[in-house]
Amino acid sequence: MPSSDQPILEVKDLEVEFHTDSGVVQAVNRVSFDLYPGETLGIVGESGSGKSVTNLTMLGLTPQPPGKVVGGSVKYDGQELLSLSQKQWQNVRGKKIAMIFQDPMTALNPFLTVEEQLVEVTMLHMGLSRAEASKHAIELLQKVGIPGAEKRIGDYPHQFSGGMRQRVMIAMAISCQPDILIADEPTTALDVTIQAQILELMKTMQQEFGTAIIFITHDLGVVASICDRVMVMYAGRKVELSTTVNIFKHPRHPYTMGLLSSAPRWDQGEDELQAIDGQPPDLLNLPTGCSFNPRCQFVQDECLQQTPPLITLDEQPVHQHACIREIRYLKENR
């Protein structure tokens, strides 16, 4: 739940390009959103929607080249992040904004013990001595539910199972009590029972520290169970943003509707899934007008000509969307 009116993170008109051999790809196209302390914002989208690039940019980790931030601003607690030097970034990354990656095996250093990796963070950011940092590290491992933390702390990442490794990642991410935690598909590689444990752990940590979480995933079930608000992205753009209940119960963008009706549910047995026709967008070759128009079942002439603007109506809770047809419908029915 948003516990404060002041956003901790303000992203405005963010634009990121990738320069490839076959042309320029607009990976993130004028994306804006706010993140409030203590809330969980879900970012949903399929491959190539720009969700991961958006979040790498917020940590100053866009691979440059080929990537390039060409416009917009990202403000953390009022401070512009995009103009930071590499050195200044080090005071933000890990300390104020931390990240959990999908694959803990590649995100952890295989040559260092878990202890060495955990103490490095706190010694650097919090100025702890080695002994203090070790003690702190053991407490963290206990907190994230690793049995026998005192013994396991000397182990190497490969000695842990996938779920346990993700717990180590979470311990590392929360070690400096960051204000913002960015989780990029943190449970996608895990089995469902382990996923449930990790989601629960993240919720508990959030309640304890008041951390704001950005949760990137393609799994709508996970979104429904953990997020307060949801932003839907398609082909580099934000196409819809509102509360989780609004997005799932009253979706306005045809892409969001399609996504919801194509997700199978184990608690319902209807026979045919309503798939979205067509192929995922080719970012090098986007259609003119709305990027979703080749796959949209409600497509109209206008959609082929102009890119729909993002519309924010005067309503509570805020429900933004970018669809020309829907806005006309809403105006007529109000």
């Binding site: 449930a196 079930g221 429904a224 169970s225 119960k249």
Partner: peptide, 20 residues
């Protein structure tokens, strides 16, 4: 089954959840 999330915010807080 109770660990598998459902894309429905009403059902996400499962009442009789079996935790493993």
């Amino acid at each position: 089954l109770s660990a598998a999330p459902v894309p429905d915010p009403d059902q996400s807080v499962s009442q009789n959840r079996v935790r493993l």
